[in-house]
Amino acid sequence: MQHARDSRPVYSTESGRLCPDCGQSLAQCRCKQLAKARPAGDGIVRVSRETKGRKGKGVTLVRGLDLDDAALTALAKQLKAACGSGGTVKDGVIEVQGDHVDTLMARLTAAGHKVKRVGG
Rank of each mutant, 00 (worst) to 15 (best):
R54F: 11
L65I: 04
A111P: 15
R107E: 14
A37I: 06
I94A: 14
V96T: 12
A40W: 01
T73N: 12
A111E: 08
A40P: 00
R49Y: 11
E50M: 14
G87S: 11
L65P: 02
K52R: 15
Q97N: 13
I94H: 06
P39T: 05
G53H: 08
A4I: 08
K80P: 11
M1N: 11
K57P: 01
C29T: 02
A35M: 03
A70K: 15
A35F: 04
H3S: 07
G92R: 02
A76H: 05
Q28H: 14
R30Y: 00
V59M: 08
L26F: 09
D6L: 10
G86W: 06
K36M: 05
G58Y: 08
R54V: 11
A110W: 14
R54D: 14
R54I: 05
G56S: 14
S48K: 02
A71W: 08
G58C: 09
G98I: 05
M1V: 11
G87K: 07
R107K: 04
H113K: 12
L67I: 10
L79Y: 11
A106E: 09
D102N: 14
R107F: 03
V10Q: 02
G84T: 15
D42T: 14
G92H: 01
D99A: 11
S12W: 01
V10G: 12
L65V: 05
D99C: 01
G43C: 09
R54P: 06
G64V: 11
R107G: 08
K80I: 09
G56H: 09
P9A: 07
G53T: 13
V89H: 09
C19E: 04
K90M: 04
G53Y: 05
L79M: 14
H113V: 12
A70W: 08
E95M: 11
G119I: 00
G92I: 10
R54W: 06
K80S: 12
A76V: 07
G92C: 02
H100C: 05
A40V: 08
A111R: 14
V45M: 04
A35P: 00
T88F: 13
K55F: 09
G86C: 07
T13A: 03
A76L: 10
D102V: 03
C31N: 08
R63T: 03
P9F: 00
T109P: 02
E50T: 12
S85Y: 06
D68P: 01
E14K: 06
A71T: 09
V89W: 04
S25G: 13
V62D: 10
A40T: 01
